[in-house]
Design a protein around this nucleic acid. Structure first.
Lengths: 168, 168
DNA sequence: TTGGAGTGTCAACAAGGCTGACATATCGTT
DNA sequence: AACGATATGTCAGCCTTGTTGACACTCCAA
């Protein structure tokens, strides 16, 4: 469907053919497997999974974040997130403190133990990303980010940009 | 850990700082959500999920493929895949034929009905990819693919390249 | 012809999504 | 003070999709 005709525009649109798009789709699929492989390996054995990793990552990224904010970023239900947080809190990886201004809120922080696991996980994941970046080079990395950003839903892009700009 | 020092090499290595790597990680996370969002929406309502989509995609891509080959591509256990295939076969989306040379094998094909669903799913997913590609431009797309390819595990890269070259 | 390797199937279980319902505490407004 | 709205936590139950274990059929080579 909608094969882009080739060789007629001065600006070649060959990169928008269905075949090229399909290759992009498969690249995303196969690369995402690699992307999660290293943390998954670390987590198995421990009683945690990918959901715990995500929570730990974003709590580390925004110390003191609220449950509600985390829900927006992760895009899951509070029941799902609560199950994960309960485990992390009772295992002493996450600290949940009643909000100072608004006592209905809970502010989430990693404990020292939580930070240790976060470092272990993100080191592994960063190492793979570093290899990929180094192999591909800075220009490719810029393109990588442009395409991914354009692929996000609007709400996700807002979260992504907000996190990015905070440390820019 | 391992902050890359800046401003000392003639070739700037700023793109390998931990901060840049973390942004790459978050970009992958948020973009993958967008990547799967459209097919997921179509599948909900039907009695199928993401696993069915993946099976349909790769059977369409390699008609007559065996269960074992599909296992390697999808990276799940044969029991997981079998559950999905059983549903697709009994619903008349996939045709499973006993191998001609080796009767232990099953060759898998999409039926007309299966191809119809495949088109619906891949149209939705391609449309998002097309928008992202068009927004980012051909140079960015080339970089996107280079980085993703470098991020794959070796075995996944083999599958990716094999599929890519078949239609090149 | 027999045993091992390859392949496919069934059963049972676990993780982690989901919905719905409800309790509690707090906030803000009236 | 009272009330509705908001933020969070929890219980129960369901679904998808991953896992292991057990087993049957087919093929091939010793």
């Amino acid at each position: 469907m909608s094969q882009t005709p080739a060789g007629q525009n001065s600006q070649s649109l060959l990169f928008l053919t269905d075949e090229q798009l399909r290759q992009g789709i498969e690249a995303m699929f196969f690369a995402y497997r690699g992307f999660t492989a290293d943390p998954d390996r670390i987590l198995e054995g421990l009683a945690y999974g990918r959901a715990h990793h995500r929570a730990i990552h974003f709590i580390n990224r925004s110390p003191g974040t609220t449950v509600n904010n985390l829900l927006g970023i992760l895009g899951v239900t509070k029941q799902s997130l609560n199950r994960v947080l309960r485990a992390l809190i009772s295992d002493g990886l996450v600290d949940s403190r009643v909000g100072e201004e608004d006592k209905r809120e809970r502010n989430l922080y990693l404990t020292d133990k939580g930070e240790a696991l976060e470092r272990e996980l993100s080191n592994a994941q960063r190492e793979r990303m570093r290899m990929a970046f180094r192999t591909a080079g800075p220009e490719a990395v810029a393109g990588f980010r442009q395409v991914l950003e354009a692929m996000m839903d609007e709400e996700m892009r807002r979260h992504y940009v907000a996190l990015k700009d905070r440390t820019a």
